[in-house]
Nucleic acid binder design. Structure first.
Lengths: 154, 154
DNA sequence: TCAGCTATGATATAACATATCATTCATAAA
DNA sequence: TTTATGAATGATATGTTATATCATAGCTGA
């Protein structure tokens, strides 16, 4: 595994430890599968890649449980609109966990986790709160065509 | 059916006619099932309610096709994060179809289609466009707890 | 060491969605 | 009026995503 991934894994270990939880070997390998993928993966995709990458099969039920764990630890995001999972791109940056924002390309399936200007997000949150609604999930998923795909089709 | 629903159906007929398409009897009844429901429904829910309300069964395949049609006609929205369908709350208002915004209550399952201040939405869209991403789907789905449920649990 | 808890496995099934071919039905040209 | 055409719907099968539940393994601390 690359140095980058090693660093991310180390940081993830710490992060779990700090919440009193354990990044077991299998959970770590599931996270690595996601880190190794440029595209978001479904739980069933993860089963397949896990087998390829580690010559070891994992029941899909276990994958779902491990994903739940990794999501709780904020190491992984679920793209609700795509039923796919992606590693958080901010594991190593001591980030505040603000509202994650994903631009999902419907052509290539790629996802970019972006940072929309904080002021805009705060206005948006404020506007929602003012209707009496309590935001709990805080995540934006927006669909379209990414820069690359746009250029290719031009 | 109530006068309100009659009015909405009439408007929907017109709207389809104007795009050269037909709101067939079955499509109309699927729309009515959604209009009669306070909560969003899955395609399979629609099959069940259709049978209850019209003593007539409809294959789920047909429901999906009719939903596709109604969505293209902008009479129905799909809540991607919930895999559920809901009638557009603006059928009768000669609305511009701007970015629809849904607040989805994870307690009661209720959905409110809200209008966030246009300026905020435009800033958001602009911010996304400026990354080179071409927004095509334009829909926000935000999850949390609605006012009612918040009050009840207080 | 063993009791108790957490993690994982195994199996079944539920819930959501699409592919494909057949049939029905409306419409309009002959 | 008949018939050809295309659109809408039905029927059937299957793919994909997700959860329920009970069993087993494995760690950890008394």
């Amino acid at each position: 595994m690359t140095a980058d991934i090693e660093k991310i894994i180390a940081k993830s270990q710490e992060s779990c430890a700090s919440t009193g939880n354990k990044l077991t070997n299998k959970r770590k390998k599931v996270l690595m599968v996601l880190l190794n993928s440029a595209l978001p993966l479904s739980a069933y995709d993860i089963v397949d890649r896990y087998k390829e990458q580690f010559q070891e099969s994992l029941p899909v039920m276990s994958v779902y449980r491990m994903l739940d764990f990794l999501i709780k630890e904020k190491l992984v995001h679920k793209l609700e609109t795509a039923s796919q999972y992606i590693s958080c791109s901010h594991i190593t940056c001591n980030h505040q966990h603000e509202m994650p924002q994903f631009l999902i390309c419907d052509r290539c399936g790629g996802v970019k986790e972006v940072g929309i200007k904080k002021a805009i997000i705060e206005e948006l949150e404020h506007s929602i709160r003012s209707t009496g609604f309590l935001l709990t999930h805080k995540q934006l998923e927006l669909h379209g065509i990414c820069k690359q795909c746009k250029i290719q089709s031009a």
